[in-house]
Design a protein around this nucleic acid. Sequence first.
DNA 1: GCGGAAGCGGAATTCGACTTCCACTTCAAA
DNA 2: TTTGAAGTGGAAGTCGAATTCCGCTTCCGC
Lengths: 201, 201
Amino acid sequence: MTTTAQPSQPAARSLRPVLAGAPRPMRGDAARNRARVLDAARAAFAEDGAEVQMEQIARRAGVGVGTLYRNFPTKQALINELAQRWMDERVEIADQALSMPDPAEAFGWFVRRTAEDMAGDAGLCHMFGEHSAGNCEMPDLLVERTEMLLARAREAGAVRADVSVSDFQAILGGLSAAIAQTEKWELFAEMLVTGLRAPCP
Amino acid sequence: MTTTAQPSQPAARSLRPVLAGAPRPMRGDAARNRARVLDAARAAFAEDGAEVQMEQIARRAGVGVGTLYRNFPTKQALINELAQRWMDERVEIADQALSMPDPAEAFGWFVRRTAEDMAGDAGLCHMFGEHSAGNCEMPDLLVERTEMLLARAREAGAVRADVSVSDFQAILGGLSAAIAQTEKWELFAEMLVTGLRAPCP
DNA sequence: GCGGAAGCGGAATTCGACTTCCACTTCAAA
DNA sequence: TTTGAAGTGGAAGTCGAATTCCGCTTCCGC
């Protein structure tokens, strides 16, 4: 995650005729505000779901709506940015899991960890299930990692053969919905790990 | 489910001084329209989720929005009515399950059947998870049946001891969310039944 | 068949969000 | 310190969807 993110609208700039010069970095206070907006948005969405109003987010961040719109041209753009960050985080977690020696253990850890993270951002995650489903595709990077994790677990007999990546995605969506209702993520994670394994005779 | 349902706004009526006379029954065509609206609404919500517009529902039912609002004072009221019907249906299904001799089998059947019904009304069910969570409480009758079903299954060793009715509710919410993404209800139901059982050693 | 209450359609209204706009303020390069 | 580009706040504008309103139509008891 880049700390010095740029505003969403790339301003073609050319101070002094330098061919394709890199855009001047954001002004210090502006960058600070952008960060505050992002934090406020995450918190607000986590608390109240997607129905929070832009003005609430702005107030929470201590800025005017204008500032908010300077950084994100649209409410959806803001949501997408948050979704993007969540995805990036998922990739990191998946990588950690992939570095574990035992595939079954790695898979279980990934599921538990995801459930735990969801519990911390319940509203937020649930919103993703709702809103971003169509808008912002799961990045290839994450699909790839998930595929690996799943494949390895499958080979190790920890996951039924008939569960595809998109099934798994759907399942995680269900998980977030369940967690949004009760925060018993440990129970749910356990159930998932057990249920994903072929039923024992 | 009463076929001759009354409009949501009870009109205090008193034709001829009959003490507490029952309200005159709906006019024939009106009752027919009410039914059509309800059907159209169910179909529309199932297809497109909660974001369908009142006018779309009205057009689908072949009536004007006015008629729609005559029967349901609010969009939420319409949603609640549908939710109510779904709940009633659940009670019936639960009763069928309770009449089965083997508790484990009964529980599994109930879960599978619910998943199947959800798949048929994906958008609708998902919407319930979203909207009705707060507005329209699960009726006591359904809570009671669910509790029975769960208790019997628990005694028979088919369900882990640490799953409460509200946990189970949350889980079904998750199930509907997952099904709304992919219609693989059989897989999901299987996973649930397996996962709800204490992990075998 | 008549009368009038009940019901109907759908244009017009209301309402509440998102988004735009611009006069004003703040930053930072020279 | 000066200067002007970048950034800011928040009132006003826009827009889409829910809801109301009312003149017209349809039923139904007499």
